[in-house]
Design a protein around this nucleic acid. Structure first.
Length: 295
DNA sequence: GCAGAATGACAAG
DNA sequence: TTGTCCTTCTGCG
């Protein structure tokens, strides 16, 4: 689940459900009991994301920093959609590290690698280590290019380095490299600036679709459909679809389908040659040896 | 029932 | 490069 689109969608939902009023904060599992006590009853001021990091500001200069890691999930739902319903206690299922509760919403965090109460200074320190995030309005792709163009490391590795570029994970990197027919093993310094800008612009276009629909969408036919739905919602001609677009039921609108990701051995959708896979720095990389040949 | 994987990141050697 | 942490779900006996 968790690449940058997940974190940004979470920030959006947390703001919608909680911003401006106090939240009951607890740790049903107990492992965040101390931190929860520091936040319990405080007003939630604002939630925001930078790459895969989520920052939730509470009153009194207290911040919650969450990173989902590989397996974390943060379900933030209106209580009316949950068993029990509004006003009735929502049963805890499994290992819930953190629960955010108000009259109308319940948020359950499971399996994060980071869940901590931090100071504004610590928020700044975390953000200072992160590269530009294609989902943040003021993000500067030149900052990433500077590091890429100086590096001998393969571009597939650089795209996953959160200090170079924040928010991209294994799925987006694999798919975006294919979309631009870039050899994943090509050293950063051999990537032409124009190629990098094309990749960046593509991420700026693709990742908001991931935020809106709660799933990673990279295949052109689905991208076209998704943009169409977004446009209809924006001009009000499709009021009924807005719930889906805002992620009320994330992840089930589009068939889960990619160019390469998890398709090892199957035919490339463009040229038919076998999709290749290889463990790179402990993660499965997928690519097409013919379409993404070095030029 | 249990191993293995999974959209991540870090430390140790 | 390997091991470790976090949790849930799948597939295989």
């Amino acid at each position: 689940m968790p690449e940058g689109h997940t974190t940004h969608a979470l920030a959006w939902r947390l703001n919608r459900g909680y911003a401006g009023s106090p939240a009951a904060v607890s740790s049903p599992q107990g492992r965040f009991a101390g931190g929860a006590a520091l936040l319990d009853g405080l007003m939630l001021v604002d939630a925001s994301a930078w790459g895969k990091h989520l920052f939730v500001q509470f009153e009194g200069e207290r911040w919650l920093n969450v990173h989902l890691g590989l397996i974390g999930t943060f379900s933030v739902m209106p209580r009316a959609t949950r068993p029990g319903g509004e006003g009735i206690p929502v049963p805890v299922q499994g290992q819930v590290r953190l629960r955010l509760l108000n009259e109308a919403w319940v948020g359950d965090l499971r399996g994060p690698t980071v869940c901590a109460v931090v100071t504004p200074e610590q928020v700044g320190q975390v953000q200072a280590r992160l590269g530009p995030d294609p989902l943040r309005p003021a993000a500067d792709p030149a900052l990433a290019l500077r590091r890429i163009s100086l590096s001998a490391r393969p571009i597939a590795e650089l795209l996953m380095d959160q200090a170079v570029l924040a928010g991209v994970g294994n799925v987006y990197r694999c798919e975006v490299l294919f979309r631009h027919r870039v050899d994943p093993f090509r050293p950063g310094r051999e990537i032409r600036p124009a190629t990098w800008i094309a990749i960046w612009d593509d991420l700026v276009a693709l990742m908001p679709l991931g935020v809106a629909f709660g799933q990673i969408i990279t295949m052109d036919d689905q991208v076209v459909d998704a943009i169409q739905v977004m446009a209809e919602v924006a001009d009000g001609s499709a009021a009924t679809t807005s719930a889906a677009v805002t992620g009320a039921r994330p992840g089930d609108r589009f068939e889960r389908r990619f160019y390469l990701y998890r398709r090892a051995g199957e035919p490339c959708r463009a040229c038919g040659s076998r999709v290749r896979t290889q463990l790179v720095a402990g993660r499965n990389l997928f690519w097409c040896g013919r379409c993404q040949r070095r030029r």
